[in-house]
Design a protein around this nucleic acid. Structure first.
Length: 468
RNA sequence: GGGCCGCUAGCUCAUCGGGUAGAGCAGGGGACUUUUAAUCCCAAGGUGCCGGGUUCGAGACCCGGGCGGCCUACCA
């Protein structure tokens, strides 16, 4: 068998060939001589005639190899499933009408020295699929599709934001002070500086520094890291989109997010109606807006607000088996009640608005409602898709909020923020009115591709290392 | 972190009231010039996740551990 070449030059993708020749009748031969390369997925040898199925990642096409035409016919028949091969020959159809490439010359490009999974059943063990994604992606069509969709989704998102005139930036992943979200960070150490650094839990505070700097629309799509448990909805590293727009408030940002999601749904699935867990969901804009307290009222029939006595809020929490700590104020209690009793039952897209100041350290106070902020979360299919607000721009208020967080942190809440003096200094130079949002890209990809585990949209999800 | 379930050949799965493991596919050998998961014949393939225990005898039963899944708890 010939040596493996150093390069090979396919001139067609299979999906294009299939599209181009879709109307061809049985027993036809075209003058289209093509070179394609990919993996041999199936093989049917019949003595002096062999058939194969080649998959190049874009699609599959049959290989037609008569011994009279195909050089080194014996070797061709002895190829293993999973071998990489390059094929050159005419596009034709067989007697049965199957579109094929006749194998007039071929090259072995890589041997599959390990047996491929069962050609019919594929790979079903989820653990093996995640650990050996390189096999899963060949063998599991839906897996490959999902990642292609994810890639296109991010690309479309990027151009959507660029069309708004937004600039993409990259801010530090190593943070000397963790901040921008309530989450436990990963810690690492820089030797030369002899300095502990935190992997970012959010890019938020750096992006708003850039708004101070005069970049009036900025966004970042990047990995963030949270030292938390794993689940079907949580991977310790995940991709966050954050966007900030100067002169805008949370209403503007809500309009933008629903526009984006509708756009993505149409571009990627052809419809605003998606399917999640077998259930339809329409993400067409506009999405409903409702305050947190309104939704709690609808869900459990009790009216709560920041003036409701603590005792009463605790009774409600007890009644619905919502856990809380003694130091929770009314704001935190209301949030907990909302999250435990209401959030997961919301199906159609809804913007939940007006979060208590107590639980929103970076959001600007509501323009009319005391104790609330102009913050929103979009809940889609019972899950949080994004979190945004009119940004808190006042350095003195921000300091008080940080100090409140810091004291929580002192008391042992390792998800609470600490005071970031440099961020306060930036605010002192002046942050204009600004609206911002963070969108979990993985969650969005789950929504668009209709999968129910984040591991189906993360190529190499975090797993315990294999033990030998 | 808690509850439930799973782990048998490279892959997909069987087996039994505890008696020493079997099939399809893949891989090897052979037949076959229009197949579509091609088909047919032959041979080979196993530390039954790991470690203890009960038993004359354990892949099956008990205990401990590992890894994974689902549900549940938290952040997106």
């Amino acid at each position: 068998m010939a040596e493996i070449p150093y390069r090979y030059a396919p001139d067609n993708k299979i999906e294009n060939l299939v599209e181009k020749h879709s109307g061809l009748e049985a027993g036809q031969e075209t003058s289209d001589v093509v070179t394609v390369a990919g993996r041999l997925m199936l093989r049917r040898v019949q003595g002096k005639l062999a058939f194969g199925t080649l998959d190049d990642g874009s699609g599959r096409i049959q290989l037609f190899a008569p011994s009279k035409v195909t050089p080194d016919f014996e070797d061709f028949c002895n190829l293993n499933l999973g071998d990489w091969i390059g094929i050159n020959g005419a596009v034709m159809t067989t007697k049965r009408g199957e579109l094929s490439v006749r194998v007039e010359s071929w090259s072995l490009l890589a041997e599959a020295r390990r047996p491929f999974p069962d050609k019919w059943h594929g790979m079903t063990d989820t653990d093996t699929r995640y650990r050996q994604r390189y096999v899963d992606l060949w063998v599991t069509e839906e897996a490959r599709k999902a990642f292609q969709t994810r890639s296109r989704m991010i690309s479309l998102t990027r151009s959507f934001l660029e069309n708004l005139g937004a600039m993409e930036v990259e801010t530090p992943i190593f943070h000397p002070i963790p901040g921008g979200a309530n989450a436990r960070p990963f810690v690492t150490h820089h030797n030369a500086l002899d300095l502990d650094l935190y992997l970012r839990v959010a890019p938020e505070l750096y992006l708003k520094r850039l708004t101070v700097a005069g970049f009036d629309k900025v966004f970042e799509i990047g990995r963030v890291f949270r030292n938390e448990g794993l689940s079907t909805r949580h991977n310790p590293e995940f991709t966050m989109l954050e966007f900030y727009q100067a002169y805008a408030d949370y209403e503007d940002i809500m309009a933008l997010v629903e526009e984006l999601v509708e756009h993505l749904a149409i571009q990627l699935t052809g419809s605003t109606i998606l399917e999640i867990e077998g259930r339809a969901i329409d993400v067409a804009k506009p999405w409903r807006r409702a305050t947190m307290t309104e939704l709690v009222q609808e869900s459990i029939g009790v009216s709560v607000d920041l003036d409701t006595p603590l005792k009463q809020l605790r009774d409600i929490a007890d009644k619905h088996e919502v856990a809380y700590k003694d130091d929770y104020g009314p704001g935190k209690l209301i949030l907990e009640i909302y999250e435990k009793t209401t959030e997961s039952s919301l199906w159609d897209p809804v913007y939940v608005t007006d979060y208590p100041v107590e639980v929103s350290p970076l959001a600007r106070e509501h323009r009319t409602i005391e104790g609330m902020t102009e913050r929103f979360e979009a809940i889609v299919a019972g899950k949080e898709l994004c979190n945004g607000f009119s940004e808190l721009i006042d350095p003195e208020q921000q300091r008080l909020r940080f100090e409140e967080q810091a004291s929580q942190n002192e008391l042992g809440d390792d998800e609470a923020m600490v005071v970031d003096e440099d961020y306060l200094r930036a605010l002192e130079y002046g942050l204009p009115p600004t609206g911002g949002v963070g969108i979990g890209i993985d969650r969005l990809a789950m929504l668009i591709t209709g999968v129910s585990s984040i591991r189906d949209v993360v190529l190499f999800p975090t797993l315990r290392p294999e033990q030998k």
